[in-house]
């Protein structure tokens, strides 16, 4: 029987059984406005997204590059708030059960009240929360409430993360481990660093959790490579956000382009499962 949304373990099991990797597109809630970004998400889901990463816009997104910061600015200009962000999730839940992860900066959670934020997240159908500027050192309250409300606390690891931190983070994390593909902030890049593939191998040795690679994944070829190296999924952000930016004046073309790219990216995950 189906009780509420699909969980991360269920989703990773589903794609694995089909010998696929998970395709996880990212969008900033409210970019360029609530209505359009809801249509964008719909296209992503219809094109085969296995899960979603939804960013709540923040005025000072230090972990993000210019593309996503510009999306945050557009969303905030269109009147996005934390309440509207949750409303956005509620609307997505009207048409899909796939896992939804939030990508947020800590101040938004802190102002809402940590407990209140997690409670609203659960109520509206969020599966996981990744806080871009919250390393394990500061995460004890977030973890407490993630457990209380049954939300997976997701953490990032990077090339610079030592082995001892890797094991520590694997123990705290739930849902999946977010592997940062590049040194630096989010943004589309043309080649994938050799180091990224080594990092996937290294992370694999420290965790049984699924691994998803994000930051700088922009081509079908990147997806194939990271899945082959042992990743369970790929998170694609900046190239999609670039399409929103490019076609913000022509919604029809925007949605068509998003659909076309998502279909291609999803296709790249097929036959590449670990």
């Amino acid at each position: 029987m189906n009780n509420g949304p699909e969980t991360y373990p269920e989703m990773f099991k589903r794609v694995k059984e089909k010998s696929e990797g998970a395709f996880i597109p990212f969008v900033v809630a409210g970019d360029p406005d609530l209505e359009t970004s809801l249509l964008v998400v719909k296209e992503m889901v219809n094109a085969g997204a296995d899960a979603l990463e939804i960013g709540f816009p923040f005025s000072d997104p230090v972990a993000d590059g210019p593309t996503i910061q510009a999306a945050d600015v557009r969303a905030l200009k269109s009147g996005m708030t934390t309440s509207k962000g949750f409303e956005f999730i509620r609307h997505i839940r009207e048409f899909t059960d796939i896992p939804i992860g939030l990508l947020v900066y800590y101040n938004l959670i802190y102002q809402r009240g940590i407990g209140q934020f997690y409670k609203e997240a659960q109520k509206n159908g969020v599966n996981g929360i990744l806080i871009a500027d919250l390393p394990p050192e500061e995460a004890s309250s977030a973890i407490e409430f993630s457990k209380k409300f049954g939300i997976s606390q997701i953490f990032m690891v990077a090339q610079t993360t030592s082995n001892s931190r890797l094991s520590h983070i694997s123990q705290m994390a739930e849902g999946f481990i977010y592997v940062v593909a590049v040194k630096g902030v989010t943004g589309a890049r043309s080649d994938l660093e050799r180091d990224t593939l080594d990092l996937i191998h290294r992370v694999r040795k420290h965790t049984d959790l699924p691994i998803c690679v994000g930051f700088g994944i922009s081509k079908t070829d990147h997806i194939k490579k990271v899945l082959k190296a042992g990743s369970n999924g790929a998170i694609v952000a900046s190239v999609l956000v670039e399409l929103i930016e490019k076609y913000q004046e022509d919604r029809r073309v925007m949605l068509m382009e998003i659909r076309r790219l998502c279909l291609a990216l999803k296709k790249a995950t097929r036959g590449c499962g670990p």
Partner: peptide
């Protein structure tokens, strides 16, 4: 880390994981 960098409850290390080794 040698210290948690707290002044009472203020301060701390609210940065992306990527920066932790540098810090």
């Amino acid at each position: 880390m040698i210290s948690d960098g707290k002044f009472g409850k203020y301060g701390g290390i609210f940065v992306p994981e990527l920066l932790i080794p540098a810090i």
